[in-house]
Design a protein around this nucleic acid. Structure first.
Lengths: 193, 193
DNA sequence: TAGATAAACAAACGTTTGTTAGTTTATCGA
DNA sequence: TCGATAAACTAACAAACGTTTGTTTATCTA
């Protein structure tokens, strides 16, 4: 019980931190800013977390672990490569909509990770990109996709999906499903007639 | 002559600042960091610039002014809408390759602009996006483009082009021309067969 | 209810921040 | 060569930073 309460406060700190880091950047967010948002003195937060750096680490690796484990799962399903790629795009958009602040931090503030944490994060991302690229390559080899440059295709997809973080608001007159379908159609079929 | 030397030093400071802001963020870059990169004490730079904020402003508005004026020029050329959109994509990719650090700062650190400068920058960007969106809409109306959601198409294009900043290196085995062609093909035709 | 533990606080720490002031060095026209 | 101006320097500033300390308050267990 005691542990559960502790985890809740800790979780609250992480959530508010993600929001503030997204809005003002890691360096632009002070522990006093964060404390004010959480409703606590900056010093008090050290009862729940070890350091400002640790907050960033927990947010970044939460996101990267999600991507990595979901990729592993998708790789093992028995569907076409097009379907697998669609599933990954789906994952990206959904995670962005549901946990936008954390994804944003993992996208933009990962570079403030230090030493081995920074290396580990870069390594995880590189492996994820490799796995994603392999699916595209196999899709081309299987004749399901156009023979595009794999790297260009990979990064175009990843980037095209990133803007959702900057643009999507629940009241923009477009649902998550519509948004997803529009993006997928665009990436798969292009805009030209 | 004296003025020219002054401008050169000032330009050097702006260029090194763009590199550092890109690498470590605006907040993560101290005036002492910047001075070391420029080869000068932090205090000495105040002979050439007025404040750290001013450096950010000069970089951001240099980029946004380029976009705005180029858009105006493209709008007035007499070609198809597809060609106009291609010209804009071309502009984005070229500017990213030639002045990547500044573009990166304008993309990521503009939020640290203050007061009226922040508002002015947001306004300029909004107008640019409106102009770009109008071209897409007219392209659809003219039957040149698929009837996609205009906003989704706009932001997918803008984002797809942004990753160049994160990925492109002169020695990656792909020329700027090839890169550009690959991205355009992808955005116009998609990856599906 | 007494004792222990968790979680809040205010105050202070040593650094680092952007910036200013005062001074010295280099450059250049007269 | 002298005097002026530009541009570098060192030293210091107040403010803000992440974090630690010591203490008080609240909560749960026995």
């Amino acid at each position: 019980m005691t542990k559960k309460v502790k985890n809740n406060k800790r979780q609250l700190i992480l959530e508010e931190a993600a929001k503030l880091f997204k809005a003002k950047g890691f360096g632009g967010t002070s522990m006093r800013d964060l404390g004010a948002q959480v409703g606590m003195e900056a010093a008090s937060m050290y009862n729940h977390i070890n350091s400002k750096d640790e907050i960033l680490e927990l947010i970044c690796f939460h996101v990267s672990n999600t991507y990595v484990s979901q990729l592993a799962q998708i790789e093992q399903t028995e569907t076409s490569y097009v379907e697998k790629i669609k599933a990954l795009i789906h994952l990206h958009i959904r995670l962005m909509i549901e946990d936008g602040a954390a994804v944003s931090v993992a996208n933009n503030d990962w570079k403030y990770l230090t030493n081995d944490k920074l290396e580990a994060f870069k390594e995880a991302r590189k492996n994820y990109e490799k796995g994603f690229a392999a699916l595209i390559e196999q899709g081309i080899a299987a004749g399901e996709l156009q023979p595009v440059n794999t790297s260009v295709a990979l990064f175009t997809i990843l980037s095209a999906v990133r803007w959702v973080e900057l643009w999507y608001r629940p009241g923009r007159g477009i649902t998550a499903e519509e948004l997803e379908e529009n993006i997928m159609t665009l990436l798969l079929n292009g805009i030209a007639k």
